[in-house]
Design a protein around this nucleic acid. Structure first.
Lengths: 186, 186
DNA sequence: GTTACTGCAAACGATTTGCAAGTGG
DNA sequence: CCACTTGCAAATCGTTTGCAGTAAC
């Protein structure tokens, strides 16, 4: 339950911009991976560390494909699809990575226990924007959950982005109250 | 932007318990479907209304399978898998239904524009609990989003439920900080 | 009668699994 | 040397699509 100290540490990490600080996040993540692998007699394979590094050097969301490409092209360290899945699942258990499902597309994101994710999603075009909402974060952090140890949260705010609002205003042929059309939004 | 009135109407719906009130929600949902189908020259097929009724008579989350079973067994109105998908997609566009992805499992939920969903998810056993969190809801409602028309939101709070906390305490073989084990949680 | 919808089956994409070969401890 | 991992390919799962028949308008 040393969550408090870690939380605040990650909170600082949220504002990190220099490479030094980025490195320290990666190092911290590697330590978590290390200790888990050691404790469970799992192997410290180069793949796992390469993937971790790649993951933490992508800013924002990424797909499994993108991760694979980055590994082969940028790191010259191609890894099979199956291993990517295995490893990402492992990272998810360790809370080093979070998985999102945006309109059917699966996206991952490095999180190092910074599990406060607010996303703004346009239901028309599917665009996803990261969101800073300190008021909401504070409300969630302040909320006590009965018989439940809260580790993190994800908030998805659905709506229509300004670009699509414009498009809708121009079309406007459908008369449902929400003015959500039958545009593609799978 | 008649969202306000609808919101409050749905808020009342949240506390509805009697069949009368449930019926009124279904009727309202049917009206939305009606007007959409009429406006777009789409057909008022019995399937669509049967599915809508079934959806609104399930309380809480349901899978496509469960919906199909309810329709064939309870309503004696079997519907093909493809039609279920088509129709649920239509309902999602109309905001009569919301889709969740819980640990890889897809679940749907009737919502009739009551798009304020708070869920508490155990990352060990995968159990999902609906959550009443007025404080959080208020904070989100109060938040203004730049260049974005907010229609609804979904909040997932991740953590460990009391049952799994007990199990973890008994096992306790892994020494990572979060004490998240390698238990199944895909 | 025209056009949209349904159901079926095939296709598809994403993810998992089985197995043989490889490698870390 | 043993067990865990990897990579490949096959299998599986959830979802979509093409097409022929059917039904709404």
């Amino acid at each position: 339950m040393s969550l408090v100290s870690l939380k605040s540490c990650n909170f600082v990490a949220g504002f990190m911009k220099t490479n030094d600080m980025k490195e320290s996040v990666i190092t911290a993540a590697e330590r978590i991976l290390d200790s888990f692998l050691e404790a469970n007699n799992h192997r410290k394979t180069p793949e796992r560390y390469a993937i971790l590094k790649a993951v933490y050097n992508i800013s924002g969301h990424f797909s499994l494909e993108q991760l694979g490409e980055k590994l082969s092209e940028e790191y010259k360290f191609p890894v099979s699809r199956a291993t990517l899945y295995n490893t990402l699942n492992l990272f998810m258990e360790l809370r080093l990575v979070i998985r999102h499902r945006f309109q059917g597309r699966t996206m991952y994101e490095a999180c190092y226990d910074n599990n406060s994710h607010c996303h703004q999603i346009c239901t028309i075009c599917g665009s996803v924007t990261e969101l800073k909402a300190p008021l909401i974060v504070r409300a969630i952090d302040a909320t006590h959950f009965k018989r439940f140890r809260k580790d993190g949260f994800t908030l998805y705010v659905y709506g229509v982005c300004s670009a699509c609002q414009g498009k809708l205003a121009r079309k406007k042929k459908i008369t449902t109250k929400t003015s959500i059309t039958n545009n593609e939004q799978r």
